[in-house]
Nucleic acid binder design. Structure first.
Lengths: 274, 274
DNA sequence: CTGGAGTCTCCCCCTGGGGGAGGGCCCAGA
DNA sequence: TCTGGGCCCTCCCCCAGGGGGAGACTCCAG
């Protein structure tokens, strides 16, 4: 039996960390003295401790480490690990995107901003809607669009789009609507007919990678502010050319539209009604 | 003038986050109402907010973001950014190492562990020593070894080595000694003559990448425990073949030695005397 | 003038660590 | 069998960089 200090030396996990892992149910000492509370480990627990160490180096959250350790089936275990390696891949992609975007930001070649004020008519579309956390936007969008495609089939009546509740940006959670235009929109699964209301829309087009889209948002917002307008409802995006159309990011075009009121009333505080 | 909610919509930074950035001195509102405390921003601050957003996506700490924003010279600013990109590189390398090591750990091909109990004589060497945090070990080692090489020159009397206080593993901070054997060791800069005491040493050799070294530590520890020995002083490593000898990691050999006492006394609790 | 959306501050919580205080336990030597 | 000192225990506080929510005040259009 090994006291916690000896076990610490053998595994290169600090004593404090071992105690935390005990508390979290990750690595239970083989025996705990009932009266003194002393933790005693065995040499057979060393490999487990090392696996935990590696997983933590990969920033796998403690509950997930526990799941991995407790899954008896090696295949299932491998799948859980692979899932986290996928997460690392995604994180790397995010980092790469931020680096690229930062570079573009620091070497600004200000493109002429073309803004249009347009009266957008109401339209009934096939949509998927839900309350979403800001971090889940990407994943939720992918799922919702896939479901739309599955229900509507490949023949499109026009580019897909989305409505984004301002609370999504201001408070990190809000209503999200993803839609595709359709004649006589069906009701199936999460897909429902939704009527996008008529509105006065300030519109511009974002070119290229979506990572930079907030820059265009900023420019559009500045334009709105300078023209003494005020936001009146969820922001709209329309994906004129996107990854579903071409693999060349430079060719992508996203139409961004802000509903506005002249000066006056903000009937719903800029939020998306239900 | 833009209220915080409008500014939030334009920059995709949440209201809470904007308040935090104000508090941290990252992004001061152009104007703060003295009586109400309302924050008011201008459209000119949007690009700054976007740069902050990008830097935070790269996990640049808030104080460093502040430094970057406040450095007036573009060159200096670029240098600060580049520094953080270097940090990202290092992190990526660490992640890659952990992935590789995890793979090796999960597909174990248990190499025969050859352990030797050896009476190590005392030796006087040229050494650099200091108290070091566990996270700084790599960097400190590199600096200390470079200084040793600069003082001693290229002709080596034997492989370099190190002594590692057990507190380094147990408590995350401890004394570290890096040395090179030398006849008549000089005193220059941080380099000093140090006498490594004679000791009974349990020794094995780790093969390959240093990322896996804790596995060998674990095996050695298990051997020590099974033979009813007890640790008596700082762990020793000797770098028989390392990156300074060959670029092939599979050829690297690190000798790992644990000073032990048979059963009996632990004169200094396994810590490194001064 | 009024009501509701917007904003303020303040406090608590999260993760995965670390620092340190105060006190009990273990065990080799005498 | 006692003793001392190293080991281990629990408990509380702190860190970054966020989020949740309460309770009160402000802004502004009708």
């Amino acid at each position: 039996m090994l006291a916690i200090g000896e076990f610490s030396r053998m595994t290169h996990l600090s004593i404090r960390t071992l105690r935390r892992y005990h508390e979290a149910g990750l690595l239970e000492p083989e025996q705990v003295d009932a009266s003194s509370g002393y933790r005693y480990y065995t040499v057979e627990q060393i490999p487990t401790a090392q696996v935990i160490h590696r997983l933590r180096e990969l920033d796998v959250p403690l509950p997930d480490v526990r799941r991995i350790l407790r899954s008896p089936d090696p295949d299932q275990r491998a799948a859980l690990v692979a899932q986290h390696l996928g997460r690392l891949e995604a994180e790397l992609a995010r980092t790469r995107a931020a680096v690229g975007s930062l570079r573009r930001l620091l070497v600004p070649e200000p493109p002429p901003l073309e803004v249009e004020l347009r009266a957008e008519p109401a339209a009934t579309v096939a949509a998927v809607a839900d309350d979403v956390d800001a971090d889940d936007v990407i994943g939720w969008y992918a799922g919702a669009m896939a479901e739309l495609d599955a229900v509507l089939g490949p023949t499109a009546e026009g580019p897909p789009g989305g409505l984004y509740d301002n609370a999504l940006f201001e408070r990190g959670r809000g209503r999200m609507v993803v839609y595709r235009p359709a004649v006589d929109p069906p009701t199936r699964g999460r897909v429902q007919p939704v009527t996008v209301p008529a509105v006065e829309l300030v519109v511009t087009t974002h070119r290229g990678e979506h990572d930079d889209v907030d820059v265009t948002y900023g420019e559009l917002g500045a334009w709105v502010a300078r023209n003494a307008l005020t936001v009146a409802g969820p922001v709209r995006e329309r994906y004129l050319v996107g990854p579903r159309d071409t693999d060349d990011p430079d060719a992508w075009r996203t139409e961004i539209g802000w509903p506005v009121f002249r000066v006056g009333p903000r009937p719903d505080g800029g939020r998306l009604g239900r």
